[in-house]
Simulated assay, not measured.
Amino acid sequence: MDSDRPVPVREMRASDADRERVAELLHDAVTDGRLTMEEHSERIEAVYRARTLGELTAFTRDLLPAEQQPFKVDAQNLLALFGSQRRDGRWVVPARLPVAALFGTVELDLRQAILQRRHITLDVSALCGRLRLIVPDGVEVRVTGRTVLSSARQGRRQDLPEEGPVVEVTGTLLFGSVKVVRPKRPWRASLRRGRRS
């Protein structure tokens, strides 16, 4: 097996927490009558046997609209054209993700995301558009793309682990911006509460 080839998004291994998330949704579905007890029992057994995220998506596909599914395992490009696109929750970030923001905003929340590889590349095309990245602690963001009359704000400086995940922003930004949002440090939050009291 080629170790340099990323595992296909749908074939990534599911965690126990992923299976429990689907089981909770199935419990809700049998409670409100969308599933019979027999259907619920069959699906629950299959959920706990499931090994991949792709397998888990099959159990809720007919119960919830696309935007409410517990996992997003499609590798579709993101396009914001005179509007906004947001990807958040439990989703798989492919090794290379094309992003286009034309007079619009793309927001990617990586706090619950699964990275297909340790090094992720966002190939951005932005014309008067914005990319907003919300990243958890320990994730390094590198903006290496070509910027013309554009801005890149990295948020507060961090002590990052040498072998930690990297999100690289490549491509071209013309009259655009990249903003990185990082979680607030706990001591800062408590300091603000202290000032109010």
Rank of each mutant, 00 (worst) to 15 (best):
G171V: 01
V139W: 01
A50D: 11
E24Y: 04
D4I: 02
V180P: 10
E140H: 08
L102I: 15
G54V: 09
V180S: 03
R111M: 02
R156L: 02
L160N: 07
S125E: 12
R188M: 13
V141S: 08
V124Q: 07
F103G: 08
G89V: 01
L149T: 02
R185C: 00
V141F: 07
T144R: 15
E24D: 12
G145W: 08
V7A: 08
S15V: 04
F175Q: 05
F103D: 05
P6M: 01
Q85M: 12
V92D: 01
S150I: 04
S3K: 11
R132M: 05
R19A: 02
M12K: 10
D123P: 10
V148L: 15
G54F: 08
R43T: 13
R5V: 15
W187P: 12
L115T: 02
R182E: 04
N77M: 07
D4G: 06
D137Y: 05
L64H: 09
R21H: 03
P165H: 08
E24C: 04
T105Q: 14
P183R: 04
H40K: 12
V9W: 00
T57R: 12
L56C: 12
R196I: 00
F175Y: 11
R132T: 14
R188N: 13
Q154L: 14
S197D: 03
P94K: 01
E162M: 03
K179G: 04
A152E: 12
S197H: 09
T121E: 10
R10C: 06
D137N: 09
T144K: 14
E39K: 14
P8Q: 06
D74Y: 00
A101L: 09
A29G: 11
F175T: 05
A46T: 10
P94L: 02
W91T: 01
V143K: 09
W91C: 01
V178N: 11
A66F: 08
Y48T: 07
R182F: 07
V143E: 11
P8L: 03
R157H: 12
V47A: 10
S197M: 01
V73G: 05
D123C: 06
F175D: 02
V73A: 10
S197C: 00
R43H: 13
S84N: 15
P165A: 01
D109F: 01
E11R: 15
L173M: 13
N77L: 00
V73N: 04
L173E: 06
V135F: 09
L110D: 03
V22T: 10
L56G: 11
P8R: 05
R43P: 13
D2S: 14
G155I: 11
R117I: 00
G138D: 00
Q76W: 04
S15M: 02
L26A: 05
L122F: 08
S151Q: 14
V180R: 07
Q85R: 15
R49H: 06
G54P: 13
P186G: 10
R156N: 04
P94F: 03
Q112I: 00
L26T: 11
A50M: 07
L63Q: 03
R196W: 00
N77P: 13
L160C: 05
D137L: 06
W187C: 12
Q68F: 04
A14V: 06
R21A: 02
V180A: 05
T170F: 02
T57N: 10
V135H: 05
L63S: 04
R96E: 11
